[in-house]
């Protein structure tokens, strides 16, 4: 709990490397966390071989949600979409390097839900995507 606000998290929150939008893009999706109104949009460019060539996120939310989005985007650039599809809750927690209670877990997983809903071409970012 006490390293919830580890320096890396505050650093990624205050100075995110991948905040922004991509125009043009191949995939774009956005959704909210209904609990707190956090909002995340993710844009992807995908190469002909199916790897993510570039990605950005935009939106607003708490340090956990924004830092995990930044870390997530960093981790998927250069990866094949097939691998992105396999990411789950544990992948995000590993990136953050912290443990989270049920409420803050929703903040941390919003970006992954949005990412996967976009990759799968779904209309909504459901909880089942990150189990």
């Amino acid at each position: 709990m006490d390293d919830l606000y580890r320096e890396v998290i505050i650093e990624h929150y205050k100075n995110p490397a991948y905040r922004g939008k991509l125009d043009p893009h191949d995939i774009s999706f956005a959704d909210n966390n209904p609990l707190c109104g956090d909002h995340i949009q993710i844009d992807l460019r995908v190469g002909t071989d199916g790897t993510v060539t570039d990605a950005r996120f935009d939106g607003h939310g708490c340090a956990i949600s924004q830092a995990s989005a930044d870390l997530l985007i960093e981790s998927i650039i250069g990866k094949p979409l097939e691998e992105v599809k396999k990411l789950n809750k544990d992948s995000v927690l590993e990136l953050l390097g912290i443990e989270l209670g049920p409420v803050r877990l929703k903040c941390a997983l919003l970006s992954l839900k949005v990412l996967k809903a976009g990759v799968y071409g779904l209309g909504e970012a459901g909880d089942d995507l990150v189990e």
């Binding site: 606000y5 707190c36 939310g61 708490c62 340090a63 903040c107």
Partner: peptide, 25 residues
Amino acid sequence: VHPHDVAQILDRDGIAVRAGHHCAQ
């Protein structure tokens, strides 16, 4: 600072406040 972070850090000192839109979006 996002309100969630405010609430979470206050919680370390035992202070319970709520963060969010309080059902009044």
